[in-house]
């Protein structure tokens, strides 16, 4: 995959060679800095799949990526929506990991996700609400799973919305709970305009993932999500 990237951008390839995937993996799992800043122009998916050990077949991903990079370079269109958000939750990493790991729980705090069906240890089927009452569906694979530390996933090839990401659970200092970091990347599928994706995943993806993490925290710490829906009003 490095070779493909190298064809596009020589200096990028040099950088890639100096940082091994192992080191990159270590920085994703244990680093405290902004993950996305560290990625620079590289695709999150590319790194996640690379560090997954090559056991999974994602040959197409980087090639497509490179093609897309070419288009992006030529047109200046932003190729991907990337978000990174962290929240500290006053619960153990184990408790949080276990809840999240059952993907069927995720619609409880991810409003745009209608349902997730776990197909087997690795695969899951996602249904999300799209504008005009439509839904959009895709299959995703867990591409890395470190108990109580990290879950990384990526949509399977050919998904309508190419997306990948990870959630990381790491102990906060002293008795401050667990830091939960989510990093996600959506790639614009062929023919679909960025605006449509934005509508699907929220006008402000950064805020949407923030809202989701806020609700996840509420659910984990208090067992409920704060709301004023349905409350009484004056005339």
């Amino acid at each position: 995959m490095e070779t493909e990237a190298g064809k596009i951008n020589q200096s990028q390839a040099e950088t890639d060679e100096t940082i091994s995937d192992k080191e990159r993996w270590a920085s994703i799992v244990g680093g405290s800095a902004m993950v996305l800043m560290g990625l620079q122009q590289r695709s999150l998916r590319g790194i996640l799949t690379a560090i997954a050990g090559g056991g999974l077949a994602y040959h197409g991903a980087t090639a497509d990526k490179s093609l897309q990079d070419k288009v992006v370079d030529a047109t200046g269109i932003n190729k991907a929506i990337r978000v990174e958000k962290t929240v500290t939750i006053d619960k153990s990493a184990e408790e949080l990991y276990n809840y999240w790991h059952n993907f069927e729980n995720l619609p409880n705090f991810m409003k745009h996700v209608k349902s997730v069906q776990v197909l087997d240890m690795r695969r899951s089927h996602w249904v999300a609400n799209a504008p005009l009452g439509q839904t959009i569906e895709w299959d995703a694979d867990i591409i890395n799973d470190q108990p109580n530390q990290l879950i990384a996933w990526a949509s399977e090839e050919g998904a309508q919305v190419d997306n990948s990401g990870f959630v990381r659970f790491s102990p906060a200092p002293s008795d401050r709970g667990t830091e939960v970091k989510v990093v996600m990347e959506y790639n614009v599928p062929g023919g679909m305009v960025t605006a449509a994706i934005a509508k699907l995943f929220g006008e402000e993806p950064e805020q949407q993932i923030g809202d989701e993490l806020r609700r996840f925290k509420q659910l984990m710490e208090t067992g409920e999500i704060a709301t004023t829906e349905g409350q009484s009003r004056g005339q």
């Binding site: 006053d90 925290k217 710490e221 208090t222």
Partner: peptide, 17 residues
């Protein structure tokens, strides 16, 4: 909420949730 770190430290108006 009574269950976030702020509430547990009696800083009730700073509640996270």
């Amino acid at each position: 909420c009574g269950q976030c770190r702020y509430c547990k430290h009696q800083e009730w108006s700073l509640c996270d949730n």
